[in-house]
Amino acid sequence: MTVTVTPLRVRDPAAFGRVVVLLGGSSSERAVSLESGRNVLDALRARGIDAHPLDGIDALRQALVQGERIDRVFNVLHGNRGGGEDGVLQGLLEAFAIPYTGSGVLGSALTMDKIRTKQVWMASGLPTPEFVRLAPGDDLRAAVFRLGLPVFVKPSCEGSSVGVARVQTEADIDTAIAVARAYGGEMLMEQMVVGDELTVGILGDVALPSIRIVPKGGWYDYNAKYVAEDTQYLCPGLEGTDEEAIRTLALAAFRAAGCSGWGRVDVMRARADGRLYLLEVNTAPGMTSHSLVPKAAAQLGIGFEELCWRILEQTL
C-alpha cells in the first residue's frame, strides 16, 4: 500500500500567528503531557513559529477572558478530568472561535469514552472485542464468568494504561476488584485478544504505516510506554495486504467515531486467525521520545519538526 502525503500548504511561519501550546493539565496523564508539550514547543520554535506554552485549561480560560492574543492552539493535553481529550477544551475554543489541532467536540468526547466508542463501531459493522460495562458497585466477579477468561478491566474514560487490570485466572479477580474500587467510576471489561498489539497513526486523510509493539515484559503497560527502553517498535507492523487492511480499518474507525485532524487507533491482531480488533482511539497522542505517531511519520520521511508543522497546518 503506497502512502502519499500532500505537500506543505504554507512555508511562512508567520502564517500561524501567535500559537499557544497547551500542555500539562490536571489529568492522570499530566507528566506525559508536559513532556509532549515541551517537545512540540521546541519543534515549532525551531521552525520560526511564535509559540508559547500554557499549562492547563484554566490557564487558557484566564488568558482568553483577559483578551490575550491567541491565534490558534496546539493541544497536547492528554486524558479527561482536566485533560484536553474529552470535548471540554474543544467546546471552550469553539466558543471563542479559536482554531485548534485535533478532533472537534464530538470526536473528542466520544472517543474518551471507550464503551460508547465500541458501541458506535459495532453499529458501523467494525470489529471490536466483546465487552461488558461495569457501573460502580456492579458484580465484577459475575461479569468475568459471563464474558469468559481472560479479560482486561480498565476505566472507560482514562488513557495511557492508567488503572488497567489483567484477569487471566480466577486468582486475578480480587486484584481487578480492588483496581475498580480504587478508580470508582465506570469500568470496561473486555475480552483479551491474544496476539499482536498494533497501532496506526492518522494524519489528516492518511493512515500512517502501522507499528507492531513488542514489550519485553509481554504487556504494553505504562512503564513499557513511557519508561522502559527495551520495548521494540516494528514499523511497518504488517506486510502486504495485511498492512493495507489494518490501515483501511484504522481510518474507517477514526472517521466512524467522528474524529478529524490527527490521532492514533489501537488495534489487536489475533494470533489464532489473524483477525483485527479495534481497541480505542487517541485524539491527542503523545509526542514524547517513546511516542508512536512520530515513529510512524518518520517512516515516510517526516521528521518531528515537520510533523508538528503539518498538524498545525490543519488549523489554517
Rank of each mutant, 00 (worst) to 15 (best):
G17K: 04
L23K: 03
D174Y: 02
K114S: 06
C308V: 08
A123V: 01
G137H: 08
V200G: 01
S27H: 10
D273M: 11
E280P: 00
D174E: 15
L77C: 09
D242M: 06
R61T: 10
R81F: 12
G79T: 06
A228R: 15
V32N: 06
I177D: 03
T283P: 00
M189Q: 11
Q90H: 01
V167L: 02
G184R: 10
I177E: 15
R247S: 03
C259L: 05
S161N: 12
M122W: 02
L292H: 09
Y183A: 05
E197H: 10
G195N: 11
N39V: 03
L292V: 09
Q191N: 07
V164M: 04
P53C: 06
L292S: 07
V214S: 02
H290I: 03
A176K: 04
M187G: 07
V20T: 13
L8P: 01
S36E: 07
R81C: 01
G185R: 13
S28Y: 03
A298M: 07
A245K: 12
L278V: 11
Q314F: 00
M189T: 08
L54R: 14
P209D: 08
S291W: 03
A165K: 10
D71M: 07
M287S: 05
L54M: 14
A14T: 15
L188E: 14
Q232G: 01
T6M: 09
A228K: 14
I70Q: 04
R310I: 02
R9Y: 00
K216D: 08
I302G: 03
K118H: 10
L140S: 07
S33T: 10
R47Q: 15
Q232N: 03
W219I: 12
T175K: 03
A143Y: 11
A46G: 15
N80K: 10
A245Q: 14
G204Y: 02
D139A: 11
D196P: 04
A143S: 13
L134C: 05
A284I: 15
L251E: 06
R72M: 10
V120F: 04
A253D: 11
Y220K: 03
Q66P: 00
A59H: 13
L278W: 09
G84M: 12
G137C: 08
A135R: 11
F254V: 07
T315F: 00
T315D: 00
K216N: 06
G79F: 06
L92C: 00
V3P: 00
S33H: 09
D113G: 05
Q119I: 12
G301N: 03
N223Y: 14
G84V: 14
V120N: 01
S28K: 08
L134V: 06
I211W: 09
T117A: 09
T111V: 09
S103G: 00
L208I: 08
L149C: 07
T117E: 00
V200H: 05
E186A: 04
S210T: 08
S108K: 01
R247K: 15
C157Q: 12
R181A: 14
M187F: 12
H78F: 07
G102F: 08
K225C: 06
G185K: 13
A228L: 14
T175L: 00
L249Y: 12
L23W: 01
E35H: 13
A43F: 08
I202A: 11
S289Q: 11
V200Q: 02
G301C: 05
S289R: 12
V265Q: 02
